[in-house]
Write a protein that binds this DNA or RNA. Sequence first.
DNA 1: TTTTCAAATGAACGATCGTTCAGTTAGATC
DNA 2: GATCTAACTGAACGATCGTTCATTTGAAAA
Lengths: 195, 195
Amino acid sequence: MARKQGSHSDITRPRVRAEALRLIARYGYAAVSMRQIAAEVGVQVGALYNYTADKQTLLFDLMQDHMEDLLAALQSARLEGGARDQLDGFVRFHIRYHLPRPEQVFVSYMELRNLTPENFARIEVLRRKYEDALEVILALGQTQGVFRVADTRVATMALIALLTGLTNWYRSGGRLPLGEIEQIYLDLVRKAVAA
Amino acid sequence: MARKQGSHSDITRPRVRAEALRLIARYGYAAVSMRQIAAEVGVQVGALYNYTADKQTLLFDLMQDHMEDLLAALQSARLEGGARDQLDGFVRFHIRYHLPRPEQVFVSYMELRNLTPENFARIEVLRRKYEDALEVILALGQTQGVFRVADTRVATMALIALLTGLTNWYRSGGRLPLGEIEQIYLDLVRKAVAA
DNA sequence: TTTTCAAATGAACGATCGTTCAGTTAGATC
DNA sequence: GATCTAACTGAACGATCGTTCATTTGAAAA
């Protein structure tokens, strides 16, 4: 009979994920050893292999979970209305989803080269879906005449880079409150694509 | 008497730098061994230590050289005229300097966490100088009334992220020629900060 | 109380790591 | 041709790496 309550794995499994994410975000995948992760969790290194096939899979799972959670949250946001409203919604969603998760964002953008080619391809599919959601909005605004960009794909890449950059320098408790920064980014994006 | 012509070090030294840069850009600092670098150069690993004190210094030197070359090139660009002209000049300079150097850009932005705290602080000073050059332009345009941004510092960080993002996805021989992409980015930046 | 097995230990595997250094080599200098 | 020395080799150092596995542990199930 499988143990259903108080099972150690229910506690240890998420802790492995959490400590791996924290350490990899801080020191990088290649610089973090399985022994370091185990020490932070409070187990011996061998115990980690009850929860992951190998180190590579642990990294991939962290990145895949992040991308799938991101896409699910975007779906739940249910962006509606005209292109302008949808763009506002996307910008707000992006900022509010990413800022509280600096470690996931950092790992998902910095450790791509440490994925095997197969795993890399699978993450790229998910990332592309997210980019496409923005491009669809830009294309809609273009046909509605409320946006004017020379190329929706280039504008998409540019805007996502602009938005994601915020995660790299924003620190809570900084000079400006989050709401104000959100408004500034909203203004920059609106103007950049305005007709 | 020191050998002045045909000295092996005149050949080996730049090759060590070049192969280290190439490998680190591809696999990451922590994932590249001194033996890999030596093998690419075509020497034994011990020979590398004629050219660098240790692996950390090799990384730091690559990043410092990049930042100093960047700042020197920016000085040489001699941006003049009104704020609008200076902003155009900065955007063009940034794109034209960074795009031919994807490896330097990649390493300088991705390997910051692998620097010792002392070396990190020294690189940050250089990076801040570059950011400040753009912020001065934005502040000038703000007082001249040709730009309108809610916060010059936030706008600076946002624009640099937007511009640097180009280096991450641009591949020569892609769908659009470089000149066209440059024009698209120029339009996005101009509109984003427009009064 | 006894049984059961998920969960974790602890030790070991071969491989690789950054770094050091005594010794060899080969080209410029005399 | 002899001398000199910058440049490099080749071997070694202790440490650490990812991964495996027989064994132990302890709490739920019987």
